[in-house]
Design a protein around this nucleic acid. Sequence first.
DNA 1: TTCCATAAGTGGTCCTTACCAATGTGGAGA
DNA 2: TCTCCACATTGGTAAGGACCACTTATGGAA
Lengths: 253, 253
Amino acid sequence: MQGEETASAANMSAVLEFDSDTAKHEQVRTRLIEVIATMNTGDQLPSERELAAQFGVSRMTLRQAISSLARAGYVSRLQGAGTFVIDRTISKNTELTGFTEDMAARGFNASSRLLKVERVAAGAFLGHELILSPEEMVFHIERVRMADGIPMCLETIDLPADLTPDLDQQPLEKSLYAILATTYGIELFEADQIITPTVVNQEQARLLQVPIHSPALIVKRIGFDRKRRPIEHAISIYRGDRYDIRLVIKRRE
Amino acid sequence: MQGEETASAANMSAVLEFDSDTAKHEQVRTRLIEVIATMNTGDQLPSERELAAQFGVSRMTLRQAISSLARAGYVSRLQGAGTFVIDRTISKNTELTGFTEDMAARGFNASSRLLKVERVAAGAFLGHELILSPEEMVFHIERVRMADGIPMCLETIDLPADLTPDLDQQPLEKSLYAILATTYGIELFEADQIITPTVVNQEQARLLQVPIHSPALIVKRIGFDRKRRPIEHAISIYRGDRYDIRLVIKRRE
DNA sequence: TTCCATAAGTGGTCCTTACCAATGTGGAGA
DNA sequence: TCTCCACATTGGTAAGGACCACTTATGGAA
Protein backbone atom coordinates (compact mmCIF):
# COMPACT_ATOMS: atom_id res chain seq x y z
CA MET A 1 0.00 0.00 0.00
CA GLN A 2 1.29 3.41 -0.86
CA GLY A 3 -1.17 5.27 1.32
CA GLU A 4 -3.81 6.78 -0.95
CA GLU A 5 -5.42 8.65 1.91
CA THR A 6 -2.12 10.12 2.93
CA ALA A 7 -1.54 11.11 -0.67
CA SER A 8 -4.80 12.99 -1.00
CA ALA A 9 -4.20 14.46 2.41
CA ALA A 10 -0.96 15.82 1.08
CA ASN A 11 -2.91 17.63 -1.64
CA MET A 12 -4.60 19.76 0.96
CA SER A 13 -3.24 23.18 1.50
CA ALA A 14 -1.14 23.15 4.59
CA VAL A 15 -2.61 25.62 7.06
CA LEU A 16 -5.35 27.51 5.31
CA GLU A 17 -5.30 31.26 5.03
CA PHE A 18 -8.49 32.62 6.48
CA ASP A 19 -10.77 35.44 5.49
CA SER A 20 -11.38 37.45 8.58
CA ASP A 21 -15.02 38.09 7.71
CA THR A 22 -16.13 34.53 7.08
CA ALA A 23 -16.39 31.97 9.85
CA LYS A 24 -13.48 29.57 9.91
CA HIS A 25 -15.69 26.49 9.93
CA GLU A 26 -17.36 27.83 6.78
CA GLN A 27 -14.04 28.17 5.03
CA VAL A 28 -12.92 24.76 6.22
CA ARG A 29 -16.19 23.35 4.96
CA THR A 30 -15.69 24.89 1.53
CA ARG A 31 -12.14 23.60 1.34
CA LEU A 32 -13.22 20.12 2.42
CA ILE A 33 -15.81 19.96 -0.33
CA GLU A 34 -13.05 20.61 -2.85
CA VAL A 35 -10.97 17.86 -1.32
CA ILE A 36 -13.87 15.41 -1.29
CA ALA A 37 -14.53 16.15 -4.94
CA THR A 38 -11.13 14.66 -5.77
CA MET A 39 -11.84 11.47 -3.85
CA ASN A 40 -13.91 8.39 -4.64
CA THR A 41 -17.02 6.97 -3.04
CA GLY A 42 -16.09 5.05 0.08
CA ASP A 43 -12.68 6.63 0.52
CA GLN A 44 -11.73 7.44 4.06
CA LEU A 45 -10.90 10.99 5.05
CA PRO A 46 -7.93 11.67 7.30
CA SER A 47 -8.84 11.64 10.96
CA GLU A 48 -10.36 14.70 12.57
CA ARG A 49 -7.26 15.34 14.62
CA GLU A 50 -5.11 15.16 11.51
CA LEU A 51 -7.37 17.43 9.45
CA ALA A 52 -7.59 19.95 12.26
CA ALA A 53 -3.82 20.12 12.40
CA GLN A 54 -3.53 20.47 8.62
CA PHE A 55 -6.04 23.30 8.44
CA GLY A 56 -4.63 24.93 11.52
CA VAL A 57 -7.93 24.98 13.41
CA SER A 58 -9.13 23.34 16.57
CA ARG A 59 -10.75 19.94 16.37
CA MET A 60 -14.06 21.48 17.47
CA THR A 61 -14.07 23.87 14.52
CA LEU A 62 -13.12 21.07 12.17
CA ARG A 63 -15.96 18.96 13.58
CA GLN A 64 -18.40 21.79 12.95
CA ALA A 65 -17.46 21.77 9.28
CA ILE A 66 -17.67 17.99 9.00
CA SER A 67 -21.01 17.88 10.80
CA SER A 68 -22.41 20.23 8.20
CA LEU A 69 -21.07 18.03 5.42
CA ALA A 70 -22.55 14.95 7.07
CA ARG A 71 -25.97 16.63 7.22
CA ALA A 72 -25.69 17.69 3.61
CA GLY A 73 -24.85 14.12 2.62
CA TYR A 74 -21.24 14.52 1.53
CA VAL A 75 -19.73 12.19 4.10
CA SER A 76 -20.73 9.56 6.62
CA ARG A 77 -19.15 9.32 10.03
CA LEU A 78 -18.71 6.12 12.00
CA GLN A 79 -17.51 6.25 15.55
CA GLY A 80 -14.40 4.19 15.97
CA ALA A 81 -13.95 3.69 12.24
CA GLY A 82 -13.61 6.98 10.41
CA THR A 83 -15.26 9.44 8.04
CA PHE A 84 -16.08 8.26 4.54
CA VAL A 85 -17.05 9.84 1.23
CA ILE A 86 -20.64 9.17 0.18
CA ASP A 87 -21.90 8.49 -3.32
CA ARG A 88 -23.00 11.86 -4.71
CA THR A 89 -25.02 10.66 -7.69
CA ILE A 90 -28.21 11.19 -5.72
CA SER A 91 -29.38 14.75 -5.78
CA LYS A 92 -29.32 16.39 -2.41
CA ASN A 93 -32.63 18.11 -2.56
CA THR A 94 -32.97 18.75 1.14
CA GLU A 95 -31.54 22.21 0.79
CA LEU A 96 -33.62 25.20 -0.11
CA THR A 97 -33.06 26.18 -3.71
CA GLY A 98 -34.89 28.02 -6.41
CA PHE A 99 -35.88 26.54 -9.73
CA THR A 100 -32.74 27.87 -11.38
CA GLU A 101 -30.38 26.15 -8.95
CA ASP A 102 -32.53 23.03 -8.92
CA MET A 103 -32.29 22.69 -12.70
CA ALA A 104 -28.57 23.44 -12.68
CA ALA A 105 -28.11 20.57 -10.22
CA ARG A 106 -29.89 18.29 -12.66
CA GLY A 107 -27.74 19.48 -15.53
CA PHE A 108 -30.30 21.67 -17.26
CA ASN A 109 -30.31 25.30 -18.23
CA ALA A 110 -33.21 27.13 -16.61
CA SER A 111 -35.20 29.86 -18.34
CA SER A 112 -38.71 31.19 -18.12
CA ARG A 113 -41.52 32.84 -20.01
CA LEU A 114 -43.32 35.59 -18.16
CA LEU A 115 -47.09 35.29 -18.46
CA LYS A 116 -48.26 38.00 -16.11
CA VAL A 117 -47.07 40.51 -13.51
CA GLU A 118 -49.49 42.69 -11.64
CA ARG A 119 -49.78 44.65 -8.46
CA VAL A 120 -53.00 43.71 -6.72
CA ALA A 121 -54.58 43.58 -3.28
CA ALA A 122 -53.71 40.44 -1.36
CA GLY A 123 -57.28 39.40 -0.60
CA ALA A 124 -58.43 37.10 2.15
CA PHE A 125 -56.60 33.91 1.22
CA LEU A 126 -53.19 35.36 0.42
CA GLY A 127 -53.52 37.80 3.29
CA HIS A 128 -53.87 34.86 5.60
CA GLU A 129 -51.01 32.92 4.05
CA LEU A 130 -48.61 35.87 4.05
CA ILE A 131 -49.89 37.44 7.28
CA LEU A 132 -50.99 40.68 5.63
CA SER A 133 -54.22 42.59 5.80
CA PRO A 134 -56.37 41.74 2.74
CA GLU A 135 -56.02 45.33 1.48
CA GLU A 136 -52.25 45.29 1.35
CA MET A 137 -50.69 45.05 -2.06
CA VAL A 138 -48.80 42.07 -3.44
CA PHE A 139 -46.99 41.43 -6.68
CA HIS A 140 -48.59 38.57 -8.53
CA ILE A 141 -46.36 36.74 -11.00
CA GLU A 142 -47.16 33.92 -13.37
CA ARG A 143 -44.40 32.20 -15.30
CA VAL A 144 -43.71 29.09 -17.34
CA ARG A 145 -40.39 27.67 -16.24
CA MET A 146 -38.30 25.74 -18.69
CA ALA A 147 -35.32 23.41 -18.62
CA ASP A 148 -33.25 23.45 -21.79
CA GLY A 149 -36.22 25.12 -23.44
CA ILE A 150 -38.73 22.43 -22.47
CA PRO A 151 -41.63 23.53 -20.24
CA MET A 152 -41.25 21.96 -16.81
CA CYS A 153 -43.54 23.84 -14.52
CA LEU A 154 -46.16 26.56 -14.15
CA GLU A 155 -45.39 28.95 -11.37
CA THR A 156 -47.68 31.37 -9.56
CA ILE A 157 -45.89 33.58 -7.05
CA ASP A 158 -47.14 36.32 -4.74
CA LEU A 159 -44.91 38.59 -2.67
CA PRO A 160 -45.77 41.49 -0.35
CA ALA A 161 -45.29 44.62 -2.47
CA ASP A 162 -43.74 46.73 0.28
CA LEU A 163 -40.78 44.40 0.55
CA THR A 164 -40.03 44.58 -3.16
CA PRO A 165 -40.87 47.99 -4.64
CA ASP A 166 -40.77 48.11 -8.45
CA LEU A 167 -40.51 44.34 -8.68
CA ASP A 168 -42.52 44.55 -11.88
CA GLN A 169 -39.65 46.53 -13.43
CA GLN A 170 -37.17 43.71 -12.82
CA PRO A 171 -36.11 41.08 -15.38
CA LEU A 172 -38.49 38.37 -14.21
CA GLU A 173 -37.34 35.92 -16.85
CA LYS A 174 -34.32 35.45 -14.62
CA SER A 175 -34.06 33.83 -11.21
CA LEU A 176 -36.42 35.50 -8.76
CA TYR A 177 -34.30 34.43 -5.82
CA ALA A 178 -31.28 36.10 -7.38
CA ILE A 179 -33.27 39.33 -7.82
CA LEU A 180 -34.50 39.18 -4.24
CA ALA A 181 -30.96 38.72 -2.95
CA THR A 182 -29.09 41.25 -5.06
CA THR A 183 -31.70 43.99 -5.57
CA TYR A 184 -33.61 43.85 -2.30
CA GLY A 185 -31.19 42.13 0.04
CA ILE A 186 -33.79 39.52 0.91
CA GLU A 187 -32.65 35.97 1.55
CA LEU A 188 -35.00 33.09 2.03
CA PHE A 189 -34.02 31.10 5.07
CA GLU A 190 -36.58 28.34 5.07
CA ALA A 191 -39.75 27.26 3.35
CA ASP A 192 -42.74 25.09 4.15
CA GLN A 193 -43.82 22.91 1.24
CA ILE A 194 -46.86 20.80 0.64
CA ILE A 195 -46.75 18.32 -2.21
CA THR A 196 -49.88 16.84 -3.74
CA PRO A 197 -50.64 15.00 -6.98
CA THR A 198 -53.05 16.22 -9.62
CA VAL A 199 -53.88 15.94 -13.29
CA VAL A 200 -53.52 18.92 -15.59
CA ASN A 201 -56.52 20.72 -17.06
CA GLN A 202 -56.75 21.94 -20.63
CA GLU A 203 -55.07 25.30 -20.07
CA GLN A 204 -52.23 23.76 -18.06
CA ALA A 205 -51.80 21.01 -20.64
CA ARG A 206 -51.42 23.65 -23.36
CA LEU A 207 -48.80 25.62 -21.45
CA LEU A 208 -46.83 22.55 -20.39
CA GLN A 209 -47.21 20.90 -23.80
CA VAL A 210 -48.52 17.64 -22.38
CA PRO A 211 -51.76 15.73 -22.99
CA ILE A 212 -54.75 16.82 -20.93
CA HIS A 213 -55.19 14.88 -17.67
CA SER A 214 -51.50 14.02 -17.47
CA PRO A 215 -50.23 13.43 -13.91
CA ALA A 216 -48.50 16.40 -12.31
CA LEU A 217 -47.18 17.53 -8.94
CA ILE A 218 -48.53 20.56 -7.14
CA VAL A 219 -45.96 22.13 -4.86
CA LYS A 220 -47.26 24.82 -2.59
CA ARG A 221 -44.55 26.77 -0.87
CA ILE A 222 -44.37 29.56 1.67
CA GLY A 223 -40.91 31.04 1.97
CA PHE A 224 -39.68 32.75 5.13
CA ASP A 225 -36.74 34.90 6.07
CA ARG A 226 -34.56 34.32 9.08
CA LYS A 227 -37.11 35.89 11.39
CA ARG A 228 -39.75 33.64 9.89
CA ARG A 229 -41.60 36.49 8.28
CA PRO A 230 -43.41 35.24 5.14
CA ILE A 231 -41.68 36.45 1.98
CA GLU A 232 -43.32 34.53 -0.83
CA HIS A 233 -46.27 32.34 -1.54
CA ALA A 234 -45.80 30.08 -4.53
CA ILE A 235 -47.79 27.39 -6.23
CA SER A 236 -45.97 25.37 -8.86
CA ILE A 237 -47.34 22.68 -11.10
CA TYR A 238 -44.63 20.33 -12.35
CA ARG A 239 -45.24 17.93 -15.19
CA GLY A 240 -44.97 14.37 -13.93
CA ASP A 241 -43.28 12.85 -16.92
CA ARG A 242 -40.10 14.91 -16.73
CA TYR A 243 -39.84 15.92 -13.11
CA ASP A 244 -39.59 14.21 -9.76
CA ILE A 245 -38.77 15.33 -6.25
CA ARG A 246 -35.77 13.71 -4.64
CA LEU A 247 -35.09 13.79 -0.94
CA VAL A 248 -32.62 12.35 1.46
CA ILE A 249 -34.24 11.92 4.83
CA LYS A 250 -32.21 11.26 7.94
CA ARG A 251 -32.91 10.19 11.46
CA ARG A 252 -32.57 13.04 13.90
CA GLU A 253 -28.96 14.13 14.26
CA MET B 1 -44.89 43.18 33.24
CA GLN B 2 -44.63 40.28 35.60
CA GLY B 3 -41.95 38.46 33.66
CA GLU B 4 -43.67 35.59 31.86
CA GLU B 5 -40.37 34.23 30.61
CA THR B 6 -38.93 34.23 34.06
CA ALA B 7 -42.02 32.44 35.28
CA SER B 8 -41.76 29.63 32.75
CA ALA B 9 -38.06 29.46 33.44
CA ALA B 10 -38.88 28.88 37.06
CA ASN B 11 -40.96 25.86 36.04
CA MET B 12 -37.87 24.10 34.76
CA SER B 13 -36.32 21.52 36.96
CA ALA B 14 -33.34 22.99 38.67
CA VAL B 15 -30.27 20.96 37.77
CA LEU B 16 -31.38 17.88 35.90
CA GLU B 17 -30.51 14.41 37.08
CA PHE B 18 -28.75 12.60 34.28
CA ASP B 19 -28.86 9.05 33.03
CA SER B 20 -25.31 7.92 32.69
CA ASP B 21 -26.01 5.96 29.49
CA THR B 22 -27.69 8.69 27.46
CA ALA B 23 -25.81 11.72 26.20
CA LYS B 24 -26.45 14.80 28.27
CA HIS B 25 -27.37 16.92 25.30
CA GLU B 26 -30.00 14.32 24.40
CA GLN B 27 -31.52 14.53 27.83
CA VAL B 28 -31.42 18.30 27.80
CA ARG B 29 -33.08 18.24 24.40
CA THR B 30 -35.88 16.03 25.68
CA ARG B 31 -36.40 18.23 28.70
CA LEU B 32 -36.42 21.36 26.55
CA ILE B 33 -39.13 19.94 24.31
CA GLU B 34 -41.31 19.50 27.39
CA VAL B 35 -40.65 23.06 28.41
CA ILE B 36 -41.38 24.40 24.94
CA ALA B 37 -44.66 22.50 24.90
CA THR B 38 -45.87 24.66 27.78
CA MET B 39 -44.98 27.90 25.96
CA ASN B 40 -46.69 29.82 23.18
CA THR B 41 -45.62 30.60 19.65
CA GLY B 42 -43.20 33.51 19.66
CA ASP B 43 -42.28 33.26 23.33
CA GLN B 44 -38.64 33.80 24.10
CA LEU B 45 -36.64 31.11 25.83
CA PRO B 46 -34.28 32.03 28.63
CA SER B 47 -30.79 32.81 27.39
CA GLU B 48 -28.35 30.02 26.67
CA ARG B 49 -26.19 30.97 29.62
CA GLU B 50 -29.18 30.93 31.90
CA LEU B 51 -30.49 27.59 30.63
CA ALA B 52 -27.07 26.02 30.89
CA ALA B 53 -26.84 27.08 34.50
CA GLN B 54 -30.33 25.80 35.23
CA PHE B 55 -29.68 22.39 33.73
CA GLY B 56 -26.25 22.22 35.23
CA VAL B 57 -24.47 21.69 31.91
CA SER B 58 -21.92 23.67 29.97
CA ARG B 59 -23.12 26.19 27.44
CA MET B 60 -21.67 24.05 24.63
CA THR B 61 -23.79 21.09 25.65
CA LEU B 62 -26.86 23.27 25.94
CA ARG B 63 -26.17 24.71 22.49
CA GLN B 64 -25.94 21.23 21.04
CA ALA B 65 -29.43 20.50 22.32
CA ILE B 66 -30.85 23.79 21.04
CA SER B 67 -29.18 23.37 17.64
CA SER B 68 -30.96 20.07 17.25
CA LEU B 69 -34.27 21.71 18.16
CA ALA B 70 -33.62 24.51 15.69
CA ARG B 71 -32.98 21.98 12.91
CA ALA B 72 -36.11 20.09 13.84
CA GLY B 73 -38.11 23.31 13.72
CA TYR B 74 -39.02 23.73 17.38
CA VAL B 75 -37.25 27.03 17.87
CA SER B 76 -35.67 29.83 15.90
CA ARG B 77 -32.47 31.50 16.98
CA LEU B 78 -31.59 35.10 16.24
CA GLN B 79 -28.16 36.37 17.02
CA GLY B 80 -28.34 39.32 19.33
CA ALA B 81 -32.02 38.83 20.03
CA GLY B 82 -32.77 35.43 21.52
CA THR B 83 -34.30 32.02 20.92
CA PHE B 84 -38.01 31.85 20.16
CA VAL B 85 -40.69 29.17 20.04
CA ILE B 86 -41.94 28.39 16.55
CA ASP B 87 -45.47 27.59 15.49
CA ARG B 88 -45.76 23.81 15.64
CA THR B 89 -48.98 23.39 13.67
CA ILE B 90 -46.96 22.54 10.60
CA SER B 91 -45.89 18.93 10.47
CA LYS B 92 -42.16 18.43 10.64
CA ASN B 93 -41.84 15.80 8.01
CA THR B 94 -38.14 16.17 7.44
CA GLU B 95 -37.35 13.38 9.85
CA LEU B 96 -37.30 9.77 8.81
CA THR B 97 -40.40 8.01 10.05
CA GLY B 98 -42.42 4.98 9.15
CA PHE B 99 -46.07 5.08 8.16
CA THR B 100 -47.16 4.37 11.71
CA GLU B 101 -45.33 7.35 13.18
CA ASP B 102 -46.30 9.53 10.23
CA MET B 103 -49.98 8.84 10.79
CA ALA B 104 -49.68 9.30 14.54
CA ALA B 105 -48.20 12.75 13.88
CA ARG B 106 -51.27 13.56 11.80
CA GLY B 107 -53.59 12.32 14.51
CA PHE B 108 -54.60 9.07 12.88
CA ASN B 109 -54.42 5.49 14.04
CA ALA B 110 -52.36 3.40 11.64
CA SER B 111 -53.21 -0.17 10.72
CA SER B 112 -52.65 -2.42 7.73
CA ARG B 113 -53.98 -5.31 5.77
CA LEU B 114 -51.40 -7.83 4.63
CA LEU B 115 -51.86 -8.82 1.00
CA LYS B 116 -48.81 -10.98 0.40
CA VAL B 117 -45.55 -12.13 1.97
CA GLU B 118 -43.14 -14.31 0.10
CA ARG B 119 -39.52 -15.27 0.03
CA VAL B 120 -38.21 -14.91 -3.50
CA ALA B 121 -34.99 -14.31 -5.41
CA ALA B 122 -34.11 -10.65 -5.71
CA GLY B 123 -33.79 -10.57 -9.47
CA ALA B 124 -31.88 -8.06 -11.55
CA PHE B 125 -33.72 -4.86 -10.63
CA LEU B 126 -33.98 -5.36 -6.88
CA GLY B 127 -30.51 -6.85 -6.82
CA HIS B 128 -29.22 -3.62 -8.26
CA GLU B 129 -31.23 -1.42 -5.92
CA LEU B 130 -30.29 -3.34 -2.79
CA ILE B 131 -26.75 -4.25 -3.91
CA LEU B 132 -27.35 -8.01 -3.84
CA SER B 133 -26.65 -10.68 -6.37
CA PRO B 134 -29.85 -11.47 -8.32
CA GLU B 135 -29.96 -14.97 -6.80
CA GLU B 136 -30.01 -13.80 -3.21
CA MET B 137 -33.32 -14.09 -1.44
CA VAL B 138 -35.51 -11.20 -0.34
CA PHE B 139 -38.75 -10.97 1.56
CA HIS B 140 -41.43 -9.41 -0.59
CA ILE B 141 -44.29 -7.77 1.28
CA GLU B 142 -47.44 -6.13 -0.03
CA ARG B 143 -49.75 -4.27 2.31
CA VAL B 144 -52.64 -1.83 2.30
CA ARG B 145 -51.96 0.79 4.91
CA MET B 146 -54.85 2.49 6.62
CA ALA B 147 -55.45 5.55 8.78
CA ASP B 148 -58.42 5.23 11.12
CA GLY B 149 -59.53 2.32 8.96
CA ILE B 150 -59.49 4.27 5.69
CA PRO B 151 -57.07 3.01 3.00
CA MET B 152 -54.29 5.53 2.53
CA CYS B 153 -51.57 3.77 0.62
CA LEU B 154 -50.43 0.61 -1.12
CA GLU B 155 -47.02 -0.51 -0.01
CA THR B 156 -44.60 -2.90 -1.70
CA ILE B 157 -41.51 -3.62 0.35
CA ASP B 158 -38.48 -5.84 -0.29
CA LEU B 159 -35.79 -6.61 2.25
CA PRO B 160 -32.69 -8.83 2.03
CA ALA B 161 -33.72 -12.14 3.62
CA ASP B 162 -30.45 -12.79 5.40
CA LEU B 163 -30.85 -9.66 7.50
CA THR B 164 -34.30 -10.66 8.68
CA PRO B 165 -34.69 -14.45 9.04
CA ASP B 166 -38.27 -15.62 9.60
CA LEU B 167 -39.64 -12.19 8.78
CA ASP B 168 -42.67 -13.93 7.29
CA GLN B 169 -43.47 -15.27 10.76
CA GLN B 170 -43.72 -11.78 12.22
CA PRO B 171 -46.95 -9.80 12.75
CA LEU B 172 -46.72 -7.75 9.58
CA GLU B 173 -49.97 -5.92 10.26
CA LYS B 174 -47.93 -3.93 12.75
CA SER B 175 -45.18 -1.40 12.15
CA LEU B 176 -42.38 -2.94 10.10
CA TYR B 177 -39.87 -0.47 11.49
CA ALA B 178 -40.79 -1.51 15.02
CA ILE B 179 -40.25 -5.18 14.11
CA LEU B 180 -36.91 -4.38 12.50
CA ALA B 181 -35.76 -2.51 15.59
CA THR B 182 -36.95 -4.85 18.32
CA THR B 183 -36.63 -8.28 16.69
CA TYR B 184 -33.61 -7.78 14.48
CA GLY B 185 -31.86 -4.81 16.05
CA ILE B 186 -31.89 -2.99 12.70
CA GLU B 187 -32.37 0.76 12.68
CA LEU B 188 -32.85 2.80 9.57
CA PHE B 189 -30.58 5.79 9.59
CA GLU B 190 -31.46 7.49 6.36
CA ALA B 191 -33.46 7.01 3.20
CA ASP B 192 -33.42 8.27 -0.36
CA GLN B 193 -36.86 9.08 -1.69
CA ILE B 194 -38.16 9.87 -5.13
CA ILE B 195 -41.64 11.33 -5.43
CA THR B 196 -43.60 11.25 -8.66
CA PRO B 197 -47.26 11.76 -9.54
CA THR B 198 -49.46 9.15 -11.18
CA VAL B 199 -53.07 8.10 -11.63
CA VAL B 200 -54.32 4.84 -10.16
CA ASN B 201 -55.23 1.86 -12.32
CA GLN B 202 -58.24 -0.33 -11.78
CA GLU B 203 -56.63 -2.70 -9.28
CA GLN B 204 -55.13 0.15 -7.25
CA ALA B 205 -58.43 2.02 -7.34
CA ARG B 206 -60.20 -1.00 -5.90
CA LEU B 207 -57.71 -1.44 -3.06
CA LEU B 208 -57.61 2.26 -2.20
CA GLN B 209 -61.39 2.65 -2.64
CA VAL B 210 -61.06 5.62 -5.00
CA PRO B 211 -62.30 6.14 -8.57
CA ILE B 212 -60.07 4.83 -11.32
CA HIS B 213 -57.58 7.39 -12.68
CA SER B 214 -57.57 9.37 -9.43
CA PRO B 215 -54.35 11.31 -8.81
CA ALA B 216 -51.87 9.61 -6.49
CA LEU B 217 -48.29 9.97 -5.31
CA ILE B 218 -45.66 7.32 -5.91
CA VAL B 219 -42.96 7.36 -3.27
CA LYS B 220 -39.98 5.17 -3.98
CA ARG B 221 -37.70 4.75 -1.03
CA ILE B 222 -34.43 2.99 -0.34
CA GLY B 223 -33.64 2.81 3.35
CA PHE B 224 -30.08 2.55 4.67
CA ASP B 225 -28.48 1.77 8.00
CA ARG B 226 -25.77 3.86 9.60
CA LYS B 227 -23.11 2.32 7.37
CA ARG B 228 -25.26 3.10 4.34
CA ARG B 229 -25.97 -0.53 3.60
CA PRO B 230 -29.35 -0.84 1.85
CA ILE B 231 -31.96 -2.34 4.20
CA GLU B 232 -35.25 -1.90 2.40
CA HIS B 233 -36.67 -1.03 -0.98
CA ALA B 234 -40.19 0.31 -0.85
CA ILE B 235 -42.67 1.63 -3.33
CA SER B 236 -45.76 3.27 -1.88
CA ILE B 237 -48.76 4.64 -3.71
CA TYR B 238 -50.61 7.26 -1.68
CA ARG B 239 -54.07 8.41 -2.63
CA GLY B 240 -53.95 12.07 -3.53
CA ASP B 241 -57.24 13.14 -2.04
CA ARG B 242 -56.38 12.33 1.57
CA TYR B 243 -52.61 12.51 1.69
CA ASP B 244 -49.94 15.08 1.03
CA ILE B 245 -46.25 15.34 1.75
CA ARG B 246 -45.16 18.21 3.95
CA LEU B 247 -41.61 19.41 4.21
CA VAL B 248 -39.75 22.17 5.91
CA ILE B 249 -36.69 23.04 3.88
CA LYS B 250 -33.92 25.15 5.31
CA ARG B 251 -30.90 26.89 3.94
CA ARG B 252 -27.72 25.14 4.87
CA GLU B 253 -27.05 25.33 8.59
C1' DT C 1 -40.27 65.45 21.13
C1' DT C 2 -37.14 63.27 18.23
C1' DC C 3 -33.04 61.16 17.25
C1' DC C 4 -28.93 58.74 17.90
C1' DA C 5 -24.86 56.95 20.43
C1' DT C 6 -24.18 53.58 23.73
C1' DA C 7 -24.38 49.81 26.97
C1' DA C 8 -26.21 45.52 28.08
C1' DG C 9 -27.63 41.23 26.67
C1' DT C 10 -28.13 37.62 23.14
C1' DG C 11 -26.53 34.06 20.10
C1' DG C 12 -22.07 32.79 17.18
C1' DT C 13 -17.28 31.47 16.95
C1' DC C 14 -13.10 29.41 18.46
C1' DC C 15 -9.72 27.34 21.35
C1' DT C 16 -7.89 23.90 24.79
C1' DT C 17 -8.19 19.98 27.42
C1' DA C 18 -9.94 15.65 28.88
C1' DC C 19 -12.21 11.62 28.72
C1' DC C 20 -15.78 8.17 26.72
C1' DA C 21 -17.39 4.69 23.22
C1' DA C 22 -17.02 2.06 19.20
C1' DT C 23 -14.05 -0.19 15.82
C1' DG C 24 -10.62 -2.96 13.92
C1' DT C 25 -6.18 -5.09 14.27
C1' DG C 26 -2.35 -7.78 15.56
C1' DG C 27 -0.29 -10.80 18.65
C1' DA C 28 -0.71 -14.23 22.37
C1' DG C 29 -2.62 -18.39 23.53
C1' DA C 30 -5.30 -22.65 22.63
C1' DT D 1 -4.46 -22.80 12.28
C1' DC D 2 -7.85 -20.58 14.69
C1' DT D 3 -9.83 -17.81 18.43
C1' DC D 4 -9.96 -14.22 21.41
C1' DC D 5 -8.65 -10.18 23.80
C1' DA D 6 -5.76 -5.98 24.77
C1' DC D 7 -4.80 -1.89 22.58
C1' DA D 8 -4.25 1.88 19.36
C1' DT D 9 -7.17 4.71 16.58
C1' DT D 10 -11.37 6.83 15.32
C1' DG D 11 -15.33 9.68 16.18
C1' DG D 12 -18.50 11.49 20.29
C1' DT D 13 -19.22 14.07 24.50
C1' DA D 14 -18.31 17.55 27.81
C1' DA D 15 -16.50 21.48 30.46
C1' DG D 16 -14.99 26.15 30.58
C1' DG D 17 -13.15 30.32 28.96
C1' DA D 18 -12.63 34.16 25.80
C1' DC D 19 -14.07 37.07 22.46
C1' DC D 20 -17.07 38.61 18.33
C1' DA D 21 -21.47 40.13 15.87
C1' DC D 22 -25.80 41.57 16.27
C1' DT D 23 -30.14 43.43 18.42
C1' DT D 24 -32.61 46.12 21.50
C1' DA D 25 -33.68 49.24 25.07
C1' DT D 26 -32.23 53.27 27.29
C1' DG D 27 -30.97 57.69 28.28
C1' DG D 28 -28.94 61.94 26.98
C1' DA D 29 -28.31 65.46 23.35
C1' DA D 30 -30.35 68.23 19.78
